[in-house]
Design a protein around this nucleic acid. Structure first.
Lengths: 114, 114
DNA sequence: CGTATATTCAACTCATCGGTTTATCAACCA
DNA sequence: TGGTTGATAAACCGATGAGTTGAATATACG
């Protein structure tokens, strides 16, 4: 209930169908039926997936006659990239300056070092 | 079940307690009790969280007398960073060369453009 | 108007999740 | 040996998730 935004985005991405929908939308806007076509599930199930993606802020839907055009909203992905970048120094050998690491840390959620 | 690795990692990170555990482990190894101390839940609950993180490959546990020392394993985070980087061009204005975008696309899961 | 199309809503099922409590296992210590 | 500590296992509970089917809503079209 009322989960934090980061958790909501991670949860939305923890489903291969939803990630495939995002991948499709990265190529351009699409309607619900167009998005549902490749999947072996009902259109209603896709509509639910779109609700999850919309609540996570990953897509926006606009009315257009009887269609609902879906568009990808990259802002949460940017937040995610920043979150994971907190840990980059742990795997990236080229990331060797402590200063840059501490800079990245400022004002972030779930700081690795408090 | 037997969810794909990417889904498993995303799901593991979709919980603030588990992300806080990772943040703590980024500062250094710790035992289960040490990890559980800051949280208002039982040690058993934390042990379950550690199972989830271990199955996602985000931590490894090593026996040491009666203690179980936990260490962060950054490899899945690196995979995650690569996944989200597929979408970087959508929000990053500096990411404006199509070639670099297509290069990043090769051999990745959930390609934005098939 | 009536009908077809696009989409969502509602109710239901089944599995999983995060938490609990209780019990068990393993290692140290007196 | 027995007791204490660290950690996991097992059984259970309430909530949520992903899917279904069936009905409702909204817009276009004849």
């Amino acid at each position: 209930m009322t989960a934090d935004p980061v958790s909501t985005v991670f949860a939305a991405l923890a489903d291969p169908t939803r990630r495939a929908i995002l991948a499709r939308l990265a190529a351009g806007e699409a309607t619900v039926n167009e998005l549902a076509a490749p999947f072996p599930v009902s259109v209603q199930a896709i509509s639910k997936h779109l609700n999850v993606l919309e609540r996570a802020g990953l897509i926006v839907r606009t009315r257009e006659a009887q269609w609902r055009r879906c568009r990808l909203e990259p802002a949460p992905l940017r937040t995610l990239a920043e979150w994971v970048d907190q840990y980059r120094k742990l795997w990236d050998d080229r990331y060797d300056t402590l200063d840059a690491y501490l800079d990245n840390l400022k004002g972030k959620d779930d700081e690795p070092a408090q």
